[in-house]
């Protein structure tokens, strides 16, 4: 096996900003984003394409950054979690996730938000089944997923200018049945 690897350089276009970086050619986009560009919002949970935590968008398509060489990302349009907000305004997905408690520890959330963004761009009014399928490559151990699905529906409504909100029982206890004697 080779002891030393080749170093390469690239200008990566990330969230519409150019990053000129030098990195070993065997380094993945995940490693270069986090370690060369300082964009640590993209997380990792397995580095084998099994959990979705490292998902980013490349030319609008969701991609597992742990399975893509940074060298392959040179002239492409990369979007990461850091680019989701516009100036200081949250994207509707971010607002919905924060307000609905769809994020608990928050570690898997950047990847999920990027998948959700790609979904909403393709399908502004997704069904529950479409949301579950679009996000099904992303594992979360905190939330139990249902609240995330609801948050995506809420965000989709916000983005469409629809005033639909999640039902009251998403925020409060379901009404207790009248206690029997």
């Amino acid at each position: 096996m080779k002891a030393r690897s080749t170093t390469t350089t690239a200008v990566l276009k990330i969230n519409d900003e150019d990053h000129a970086v030098a990195f070993p050619v065997h380094h993945t986009l995940l490693e270069v984003l986090r370690e060369e560009c300082g964009l640590t919002g993209t997380k990792h949970g397995c580095e084998l394409g099994e959990c979705g935590a490292c998902a980013v968008l490349v030319d609008g398509e969701p991609v597992l950054s742990c399975l893509m060489l940074a060298a392959e990302a040179g002239d492409r349009n990369i979007e990461t979690i850091e680019g989701l907000q516009r100036n200081n305004d949250l994207h509707p997905l971010q607002t919905a996730f924060a307000d609905l408690g769809a994020t608990q520890c928050g570690y898997c959330i950047p990847g999920i938000l990027m998948l959700a963004k790609a979904l909403l761009e393709r399908e502004p009014d997704p069904s529950e089944g479409q949301i579950r399928e679009a996000l099904s490559g992303n594992l979360c151990r905190c939330t139990g997923y249902n609240r995330i699905v609801l948050a995506v529906q809420w965000a989709a409504a916000m983005a469409r200018g629809d005033d639909w909100r999640p039902p009251p029982e998403a925020f409060h206890s379901t009404s207790l049945p009248q206690a029997s004697a």
Binding site: M1, K2, R4, T6, V25, H26, T28, L48
Partner: peptide, 12 residues
């Protein structure tokens, strides 16, 4: 992190 071993990479 689990990483790739060093390689030469070509994309002709």
């Amino acid at each position: 992190m689990l990483r790739l071993p060093p390689i030469d990479y070509r994309s002709p």
